[in-house]
Every structure is written in C-alpha cells, then in structure tokens.
C-alpha cells in the first residue's frame, strides 16, 4: 500500500510539473489575448510538449526513490514513450498555427526573408526533437554506434529544450508576466541542475570509486563474463537480479555506459568482486568487451533495479529467462544456494541451441546444491534432443510446475517476445499479478 501511495505521489508531482506552465498561464493571463481559440490550443500543446521534453531528463536521472517503485526498465520505457508523445505535441503546435494562417514559409524555412529570431529558434528546436526521436527509434537501422548516439542524444535534447525556451522568451506573450517568468526560471534551474549532476558531479564522485577488471572469460552463447574488483574502496553489495551501468575507459567522463545485469551471487563481502555476463550484440559488446584485459580500469554505477528475488517472498520461485536474460536469474539461484535456501526453484531457460546455453555446466552443478530444477527449451534443437522445444509457453509451464504454483513468485527476464508471451500466459494460468516481476534486458 505504501508503495502505491509513493507511486501516486511521484505521478502527481510529474503531472503537476507538466501542467505548471499551463495552469500558471491560465491563472495569470497575459494582457493581450491571442487572436483565436485554435491559437490558444496550439500554445497549450506547445507548453505541454516543452514540459514533457524537459521532464524526459528527470525520467532517466536514475533517481533511486522513483526507480524503487516503478523499476528502471519501466521508467526507461516511459521515457521512450513520452518522448514520442512530446514530439506529437510539439509537431501539432506549429501545424495548428499554420492552419490558423500563420505563414508556414517563415516558420519552417529559417532562410526565408520573413524568418526572425523567434521562428529560427522554433525551427531549430523542432528539428532537434525530430532528429532526437528518429535517431532513437531507428538507431540500429541507421547503424549509429551506441556511444555516438548517446552523445548526440544528450546534445540534441539540450538544443531542443534550450531552443524551445529561447522561442518562448522571444515570443514574449507568456513571459511578460512575473509569475510565468518564475515558472520558466524554475524549469531552467532544474534542467541545468540535472545536466550538471549527471554529466559533471556524478563522474567526479565516481572518480574515487574506480574498478579494475580481474578476469575476462569466454562463455557459451557468444558471451563473456567480466569480473571487476574495487580499487581503494569497498565496492558494493547488491540484491541478486540487480544491474549496474558499466563504463570502461581512462576516466569516469568517458562516453558510453551500458546497463548490464550482475551474474555473480549477492551478499558480497566488502572489497569483493562483482561479475557481469555480456552477450556479443556488436558495437561495444562485440569490440570493447572482448578486448578488455585484466588491469583495465572501469567505473560501475550501481546497483540499480528492483528486479530481485529478495524483494518478493514466496513458497517457491519460478525463474523464466531467454538467452542472456538468464544472467540475473543465475545470480538469484547462486545466492539462494549460497544461503542454503531450501525452497523449490524452477528455471525455464529458453535458448536457440544446446551450445547457446550460458552457464550450462554451472547450472548442472547448482542443481545438486539446491532445490533447483532447470527446464531447457530449445528453439533450434539438435537431432536426438529429448527435452522441450520451441518457446516457453502456458502449456509448457503447466507441464512442469507443481500443484501449488500459484503461490510461487515469478521472475522473468528476456527478449520482448518472451516477455510479451509471459505477460499473457501467467494471468491465464491464474498467477496473481503481484507475484510476477519482469525485466526487459533490451531497455536502451
């Protein structure tokens, strides 16, 4: 209940900040009214689009109190969706004005004779938002390197918000009132704070929390496990299932950080090592990760995430993983074995082939150490394979789970098709939704 209350409070704050410019403008109206109702709708859409865009920075600022309620992957998805929604509002703003006879050539062509400072800043902001959303949706199709995209994403976001702010101030109709000046001032200060915190203060704080790679070993399924050791500090403990952002380079200001699940067991002693298992998906995971060698420096921002077997207690656990999505589940199983937990654990592990199964030998050993049953599901099974084939489904779960399965806790991590299938299968099996935790690993 407390969680719902806290979640509601965060939502109310979010909604308040989106509607703040609109509410202030409605309460303290400007001296000169706009020529029509449609123009005011356009203005309102513009204000909402701006607020949504500005708050996008906050959604991905890794505020732990908010992430603890919603989950980092849900916040990331919400950030992605609201980015597209903001684009809709921002595009609708000039479109309505053009319908209301505003000269399109002045607003959409910064080189036309009638272009002014207000039209140019609006055009720049609009172009930045369009590029921002397009490069995010089609990053892979455009073959943009993740690190390049990350830099461009930050810069375009900044250009979009600053362009919009300049546009609002140059237009002046809603900045002439002191109340509105305070609102825009607050927005500017919060934005600057978030950017300075994330890009400057956080890396400086991380400087003293250096990590060193002590091992880089090859795993099955075209994956690698990197083991990190804290240098000059005690490292961190984590709940099994959590993840950290990995940054490899000479300084914490290095561009490019990657959210990776921790694959080693929890309950780490101070100064203990932490391991991450990374699948080769090209880019960083196919180039930088295989090249990493013992002694290389790294910075870990973590632990993050609410996806953990420690957060939900049940009479047993059902872990459902696909591909490299098994890594947080493997961490959970190892932690339970380490703690001598005797509760039953069922691991449904979907992979392409027998050779793609990461931690195959380790899982076999683990089955002897704890009450664990692993059910491998191969989508491209070899001849003679007697286990499950195809994909994890409602029928397959039914075949293997014990009678009391509705009292178990379900933890699912994997690619979108698996997650979508399970979000339908588990309710159909009568598993209460509050006993299901999910994490999509392709969150960025």
């Amino acid at each position: 209940m407390r969680l719902i209350l806290r979640g509601t409070l965060w939502f109310v704050l979010y909604l308040f900040l989106i509607l703040l410019p609109l509410a202030t403008a409605a309460l303290f109206q400007p001296a000169r009214l706009s020529p029509s109702m449609l123009t005011e709708v356009a203005v309102a859409l513009g204000f909402i689009g701006f607020s949504l865009m500005a708050l996008e920075f906050a959604l991905i600022s890794r505020v732990k109190t908010a992430a603890a309620i919603f989950g980092d992957d849900a916040l990331q998805l919400f950030h992605n969706l609201m980015g597209a929604v903001a684009l809709g509002f921002i595009v609708a703003h000039p479109m309505l004005l053009v319908v209301r006879d505003y000269p399109a050539q002045c607003w959409l062509n910064p080189f036309s004779d009638c272009a002014s400072r207000s039209t140019i800043t609006a055009f720049v902001a609009l172009l930045a938002v369009l590029l921002l959303v397009a490069t995010s949706i089609w990053r892979k199709q455009l073959r943009l390197k993740y690190e390049i995209w990350q830099i461009a994403h930050g810069l375009l976001a900044l250009v979009a918000v600053l362009g919009a702010l300049f546009h609002i101030f140059i237009m002046g109709r809603y900045t002439s009132m002191p109340q509105m000046q305070v609102v825009w001032g607050v927005y500017s200060v919060v934005l600057i704070y978030l950017i300075v915190w994330n890009r400057l203060i956080k890396p400086i704080l991380h400087w003293r929390r250096q990590w060193e790679i002590v091992e880089n070993r090859v795993e099955r399924g075209d994956s690698r496990t990197l083991v990190f050791k804290p240098v000059g500090h005690s490292g961190f403990d984590f709940e099994p299932g959590q993840f950290a952002w990995i940054k490899m380079g000479r300084s914490p200001f290095t561009v490019g950080q990657h959210p990776i699940s921790i694959s080693s067991p929890g309950d780490v002693e101070p100064g203990g090592t932490v391991a991450f298992t990374i699948k080769n998906l090209g880019d960083w995971s196919g180039g930088r990760v295989p090249a990493a060698k013992p002694g290389d420096r790294a910075w870990l921002d973590g632990p993050h995430g609410v996806f953990s077997s420690d957060r939900e207690q049940g009479m047993g656990y059902v872990l459902i993983g696909g591909g490299v999505g098994v890594t947080p589940l493997y961490s959970m199983a190892q932690t339970m074995a380490q703690r001598g937990d005797v509760r039953p654990v069922y691991l449904f592990y979907g992979a392409k082939t027998w050779d793609d199964i990461i931690f195959r030998e380790e899982l076999e050993t683990l089955q002897g150490r704890m009450n664990l049953k692993v059910i491998y599901v191969l989508s491209q099974a070899h001849e003679g394979w007697e286990g499950e084939t195809g994909f994890v489904s409602e029928e397959l779960l039914k075949r293997h789970l014990p009678k009391q399965y509705k009292r178990f806790v379900y933890l699912i991590c994997g690619p979108d098709p698996l997650m979508d299938a399970m979000e339908k299968a588990l309710p159909a099996l009568g598993v209460p939704p509050d006993q299901v935790q999910t994490e999509r690993f392709a969150m960025v």
Binding site: L22, V43, A44, F89, M419
Partner: peptide
C-alpha cells in the same frame, strides 16, 4: 512493472493532456 501497464498509462496520460490543452484554451478565451 508490466510493460502493457506502462503503455496503457502513457496513452491515458496523453489523452488527459490533450483534454487539458483544450480546457486551457476555453479558460483563457473565456
């Protein structure tokens, strides 16, 4: 949190914001 919920929530919020934009115009234009 279920992703279907996040998507539904985003759609509901967007609808609410469109309504807010029209409400604003009505308020301002009296």
């Amino acid at each position: 949190m279920h992703h279907v919920l996040v998507k539904r929530f985003s759609v509901a919020l967007s609808t609410l914001l469109v309504i807010a934009a029209f409400a604003f115009a009505l308020l301002v234009r009296g």
